[in-house]
Structures are given as structure tokens and as C-alpha cells.
Design a protein around this nucleic acid. Structure first.
Lengths: 182, 182
DNA sequence: TGTACATCAGTGAACGCGCGTTCACTGATGTAC
DNA sequence: TGTACATCAGTGAACGCGCGTTCACTGATGTAC
């Protein structure tokens, strides 16, 4: 039990993410506490209620997502980087479907929209700004996020082909359709 | 109680949709039965289990969505019709957020992907086919659905500006970016 | 016309369950003097 | 060095709840003869 090191708060978040990774589609406070080897009441030492725990899990998900986008963006440049971010976004959703759903389930009251500083959104926005004329940047960023998010959601529902190839074609079509130099 | 006319099956579906419209975020079999003025067991005469009831509700949602898209498409033509469908899709999501979430929650095992004949997807696909070269139609349709679905989902989460104007700009950018004649 | 029977929609009580949260507690650790 | 006290993380029993589903039933309607 070397895992017993460290604060319970972090452990609960980590255990919850593992449960989601293992296929749990809904988390209960009790089940997370159980999986962490702790009484049902212990989480209340660290979170005011269940929603706060789920919110912390979603936050951790956004940190992971952001890191994925940044890594993908760094590998290439220009329009290709935009496509790479899109594919990374999709890969994240496919790799962590339950977590992804939780992040966008409205449970989490994280602001995370356009103005939230270090958000995953900002990574995408920064890349779009380098591609399209400033006048279109805001609209193009929303469009880029929407297309990638829609693709991910539809793929999770089995409603759109989720293959790397199809997704690549869709993103390339979109990136090509954007105005601006490259 | 003129409403007592008609099959319980249809009444249950209708009542469930009303509950969703009134803000319920999760439906239980019992609550739907209660709202329909019927015992908790009555729904089992018409649905094998809860999932089947939710599935029927989602189906009814798709029928509504499809009708909205068709109506919007009929008003204008060419690229404008594509934008109009997109706005109608968004309007549907905003008008029926809980129903929309249910429809795309994976609860419903409706096929409804590309090949499903009379689906909402087909309405969008038919319009895209008239706009872009046949070689790109499949990719463009997926892209169109994704952008519109992503916009809707992000809007429901409060993560993207959902104003008619912003959405219109995003969709116009996308429609303009598509190749092909118009 | 009347009787016996089958069908069928809906009832109502009960099952076992897991849930979020409350409460009063325990026992270890730190700190003041 | 020792004693008294506060803090704090975690415990464990209990609460009331709504859930999906089971079971055996009731009572109305239709049908055969």
C-alpha cells in the first residue's frame, strides 16, 4: 500500500478517474470512497459535497486535455498544427470517453469558456489566431472547437465514423476552408 | 380528463417529453408513470424496461428534430439552406436541452447514423450533396453535422456563445469554406 | 340469450438496493505553558 | 519533561429516500358454443 501516501483529496480524484477509465458511467460518492479504501464519510473532509468531487475530477480532465493539445500543437506548425490539435482532441475523447462526458455534462461549473486563461480552449484559440486574419479569429476559433467537439461527441455515440482517416479528412476540409495565409 | 383517450404508450412518451421540457434532467420510470397518473407498474405493459421507454422518447425527439430541419431547409436554397438547417438544429437544442441531451446520451440504441433512411442526418446529407462535389459529400456532411452538433453541445454547457448572431457567423464561415458551386 | 372461459391493461404491495448526507465519535498529532 | 488542551482526518452507524423490478391480483372486455 505505498499508495496510501499523499493527501486523500488527490487520491479520491485519481481513483475516480480510474473508475471512469474502467468503464464506470456514473460515479457515486460512496463508490469512489470505497474504491479509495476509505469510509463513505471521508470525502466530506475534502469536498463539501458530491458535485465538488465531480467538479475536481472534471478539472483534472481539462488539465490532461490541455496537455494533449499542447503536445500535439508543438509537433507541427501552421494549419497542420490545427489539424493535429483536432486529432488530439478526438483521441482524448476516445481514450477517456466517460471522463470526457463528465467534463461536458454540466456538472462542472468551471468557467473554462473563452476568457478562462490557461484553459484547453486557449491553446486552440492561440493556434487559430496565427492562421486566420484577426478579424475572423474569434468566429474561426468557435467553429474549430465546435467541429472538433461535435466530431468527438458523435463518435462517442457511435453516430459518426470515428476513424483517424475520416476525422483527418473532416479536419483538413475545415482547415483548408478557413481563410488566411499559411 | 379528455387526455385519458389514447394508448398509454403514447401518453407516457408525451408526458416524459413534457417533464424534460419542464426542466427534469433525469427521468425515472416511476416519476413518468406518476406524472401520467398511472401506477408504477403500468409502463411495463408497453415497454420491457426503462431503457426502452427512454429510447422511445429519444426517437420521438429525432422525429421532431427531423421535422425542424426539413422546415428550415424548405424556406431557402443552396448554401443558405445549409446555414438555415444549422440554425434550426441549434434552436432545437436550445428549446429542448434535456431532450437533446437524452437523444445523444447513448441511452438510445437507435441506429440513426449515416445509413438510417429517414433520419435527421439524411435531411442534412441531402442538402450537402446539392452543394459540394460528390467526391466530398460524405466528408462535408460529417463536417457539417459535427460543427452544428458541437455548437449545440457547447452552447448547452454554456461553453460557447449561443447567440443567433455568433452561430450564424460560424455556420456562414463553414458554409463559405466548403468547395463546390452554388 | 346465457354461460364459461380467455385475454389483457392496469393495480398495489413488497423486494432489495445504493444513494447523499447527518451525527456523534475516536484517536493521532501538534502546541502552550 | 510533562500535562492539558485544541485541531483535524477519518470512522461507523443511522436517516430517509426513490429507484427498477417482482409478484399475485382485479376487473373489464371479448369470444365460443
Amino acid at each position: 500500500m505505498t499508495d496510501e501516501r499523499g493527501g486523500l483529496r488527490e487520491r479520491l480524484v485519481q481513483v475516480a478517474m480510474e473508475m471512469l477509465a474502467e468503464g464506470a458511467s456514473e460515479l457515486s460518492l460512496r463508490s469512489v470512497a470505497r474504491a479509495a479504501g476509505v469510509s463513505a464519510m471521508a470525502p466530506y473532509r475534502h469536498f463539501p459535497d458530491k458535485a465538488a468531487l465531480l467538479s475536481a475530477v472534471a478539472d483534472a480532465g481539462f488539465v490532461m486535455l490541455r496537455a494533449s493539445l499542447e503536445a500535439a500543437d508543438a509537433e507541427v506548425s501552421g494549419r497542420e498544427a490545427l489539424v493535429a490539435q483536432g486529432l488530439a482532441y478526438l483521441a482524448f475523447a476516445r481514450a477517456h470517453p466517460a471522463l470526457f462526458r463528465l467534463m461536458f455534462s454540466g456538472v462542472c461549473e468551471t468557467p473554462e469558456p473563452g476568457d478562462a486563461g490557461g484553459s484547453a480552449y486557449a491553446v486552440l484559440a492561440r493556434r487559430v489566431e496565427r492562421i486566420v486574419p484577426a478579424a475572423h479569429a474569434a468566429v474561426a476559433t468557435t467553429a474549430a472547437w465546435a467541429i472538433v467537439h461535435g466530431l468527438a461527441m458523435l463518435a462517442l455515440d457511435g453516430r459518426a465514423a470515428a476513424g483517424q482517416q475520416e476525422a483527418g479528412a473532416v479536419l483538413a476540409l475545415f482547415a483548408h476552408g478557413l481563410g488566411g495565409a499559411d
